[in-house]
Write a protein that binds this DNA or RNA. Structure first.
Lengths: 327, 327
DNA sequence: CGCCACCATGACAACGTTGTCGGAACCAGG
DNA sequence: CCTGGTTCCGACAACGTTGTCATGGTGGCG
């Protein structure tokens, strides 16, 4: 900036005025300054600006599990879109389901003085965020609740959705329903398992522990679980899968077998409708979740101090065929 | 920081020393300082630090078309992974295929003084980046080349891959091959079209313009194009689709028809192997592309001044069935 | 005891920007 | 001519941090 000032023969303050469209600069002077800016390829340093002005850095942080997963990338896009509407940039980072990494990313973002933070929790401890929240950085948790802090949270109705799916299968005559879920220390996985149990209870189905397989999963392990579940004296006639990854693993396993159990999965996924048979899923609007979280965050950033909210979005059964077969 | 200093009864410089693990601080003093930091929830302001130190901000910018698209989200994750290895954060933004938005994002990132920029070009004009590049910000283009600047670029062998696919279909006896590509002003789309023409020439197939449909596409438009291509006196017996989106649109259209032409698509996609029939694709390693771009960028950031490189990654046919049927 | 080396610490400037304030130049009106 | 107001502009401090240098105290050694 001082280079520009020197070249234009004015003070740096005048350059600052031109750059910020402040009034009180003679048009001729402004023109000279603009020419100098152009010539030198000057671009104002936003870091210095934010330091001086002290308020907003114009950025928000987004910590999620893996941007590479379509689930989170859709979420990211939705957050980005809202941020854009509010004129903010988004810093993203993937925690890879590692609480230490989540913490590291979140605190790094705080060090960069993001105006707000959206977190898909990897762990159950979030006390480390308390000082930041007290210092005025709003935090919104998405997809899973925070472990030990009260804060805004946007969730899907994991429990109710899964229970509804059990009911759905039961209506088609299934009483031997297996559940393949993710690692039970992941909130969504344990909620869905709870939903499965409640669904069984409501539908009057005996909850059989041997029909429940929880992760973490590998393709091979899922394949052997599926084989086991579908064989024996009293095999499963229907499978509920706990998320899109597992659904796909199961479908891949089934493609090598003759058995054709009913299949219904949590999370919708692309091409589910084109498979043979089309896959029945419990769908929820991921983009809506991202938007809700981002809008909540921006409301906080703009001074909303109402009590923390918990938004629970519905999950709806999309019957496509795979879940509508009788035993 | 001055608050911490006051509470600990030392100068801010001493606090700075403690925060940065600089030597020459008495252990007792350091302990007092750490206690004060803990008590106040102090976190050093990275913005101010970067300003003072003047060198790296520890961030890179990534401008792509849409993080929500699995293609780019995998790319993003790969870039993020490399950035993590080098201790950097990633700023992302989606251009939505709008050159103005791409420019806006890239320049915004430059204003934030990113250490480097990875861009999936939306437009053909990138002269606006020249001042930034001259000022020392390395830029790497991915997936598509820059319009009018010479810079490092990582591409896929669009032309050769598509030509190989024509050859592949010709070997199975097809001579009426249709091509459904994206908007021809997108580099990858026009390259793939060129590859299609060259492939036809090499295979001794007459290039028939009426068998070529370029985007932008909607589901409805693709469906009607497919119907047209497969009917009439001399219908197409094979379809080549120009990217994963179009492949899926075509598959969806075909699912409502009786015709079963050979289908082969550019870009691999999840579940391609589980469809009936499994879909033959031209696969390339998107994560490898992201890694290559990021590694190139970091090499530049660390002072590599060799001439700009152009890395072209191969695209390989994965025959799964849909492309191996005879007319 | 005197000198030097070394350790721990602090004062100060600087990074690039903007907010505050004051001042020079000009004009209009008395 | 003076007064008061307006317009344009620059000097200076400050944001939070770190690099440089100076300083006071302590211990070892001749």
């Amino acid at each position: 900036m001082s280079d520009v000032a020197r070249l234009a023969g004015v003070s740096i303050k005048t350059v600052s005025r031109v750059v910020n469209d402040e009034p009180g600069v003679h048009p001729d002077t402004a023109e000279r300054v603009l020419a100098a800016i152009e010539q030198l390829g000057f671009r104002r340093n936003l870091g210095a600006r934010n330091l001086r002005r002290g308020m907003s850095t114009g950025t928000i942080g987004l910590v999620l599990e893996d941007v590479g997963n379509p689930f989170y990338s859709v979420l990211t896009r939705a957050v980005e879109e809202v941020a854009r509407a509010f004129g903010r940039q988004v810093l993203t980072g993937s925690s890879a389901e590692d609480p230490a990494r989540e913490r590291e990313l979140a605190l790094e973002f705080c060090s960069r003085r993001v105006d707000g933070l959206i977190v898909v929790p990897a762990g159950m401890q979030h006390g480390y965020l308390v000082p930041e929240m007290r210092a005025g950085t709003p935090v919104v948790f998405v997809d899973r609740p925070a472990g030990d802090v009260v804060a805004d949270t946007v969730l899907v109705d994991n429990l109710g959705g899964t229970a509804a799916m059990v009911d759905h299968l039961a209506r088609y005559g299934h009483s031997r329903i297996a559940f393949l879920g993710d690692a039970p220390d992941i909130f969504t996985a344990s909620e869905r398992l709870r939903g499965f149990r409640e669904g069984c209870a409501k539908a009057g189905i005996r909850y059989d522990e041997s029909l429940v397989v929880m992760g973490p999963h590998t393709d091979a392990a899922v394949a052997s679980s599926v084989r086991r579940l579908l064989s024996g004296a009293d095999p499963a006639t229907a499978l509920i899968t706990g998320n899109n990854r597992i659904t796909i693993m199961v479908l891949r396993a089934l493609s090598t077998l003759d058995a054709r159990p009913a299949v219904a999965g949590f999370d919708d996924f692309e091409l589910a409708d084109l498979l043979a048979p089309p896959v029945t899923v419990l769908a929820h609007d991921i983009a809506a979740m991202g938007r809700a979280a981002a809008e909540l965050l921006f409301a906080r950033m703009e001074g909303d101090t109402s009590p923390p909210r918990r938004i629970v979005l519905p999950a709806n059964i999309i019957p496509r065929g795979s879940g509508e077969v009788r035993p």
